[in-house]
């Protein structure tokens, strides 16, 4: 079964015919061409596919696209504005928070939700919030440092 679904993707209102069994990650990557969102474990275990739905982090690989009717979806592509990286993107770049880069979009979106909620989180809070995002390269130290650096920049 298919249905017409209206939703907002990265600030733009869209209306699409969406099959009931289409996953949000496939909708974003295949239909909207937003390939920044990565498909990692494919079973809700690694956090690479994290996007924001109504401002809260959501695993797009276990979310049905049709359930996002009326919702506001944000992907990592919404971060940069006017050719300028967001504070989080810049912080990940400058602090070497991205190594192979595959987990980075999920890390950034989870961190984005955290910083909107708590602009000045300490290391424990960052660790807790990123608990569902796995990285196989960095050992997390530089990721946590990157989120802290972004918080500092946003504060300044």
């Amino acid at each position: 079964m298919k249905r017409v679904v209206s939703l907002t993707v990265n600030g733009r209102e869209v209306e699409d015919i969406i099959p009931d069994n289409l996953l949000l990650i496939d909708y974003l990557r295949e239909r909207r061409g937003l390939t920044g969102t990565k498909q990692g474990c494919d079973g809700g275990e690694c956090g690479a596919c994290t996007v924001l739905v109504n401002g809260r982090p959501r695993l797009s690989c276990v979310t049905l696209a049709a359930s996002c009717a009326g919702a506001e979806v944000e992907t990592v592509e919404a971060q940069a504005h006017g050719g300028r990286l967001s504070a989080l993107q810049r912080a990940f770049h400058e602090n070497l928070g991205a190594q192979c880069g595959f987990c980075t979009p999920g890390m950034i979106m989870t961190a984005e939700a955290l910083l909107r909620d708590e602009p000045d989180p300490d290391e424990d809070r960052i660790r807790e919030a990123l608990g569902g995002n796995l990285c196989r390269c960095t050992g997390y130290v530089k990721i946590i440092r990157s989120v802290r650096a972004a918080a500092e920049e946003l504060k300044a």
Binding site: M1, D20, L22, D26, D42, C61, A66
Partner: peptide, 11 residues
């Protein structure tokens, strides 16, 4: 694209 989910309808 991920393995397609089986057909179902959502109510």
């Amino acid at each position: 694209m991920t393995e397609v989910l089986p057909q179902f309808k959502i109510v």
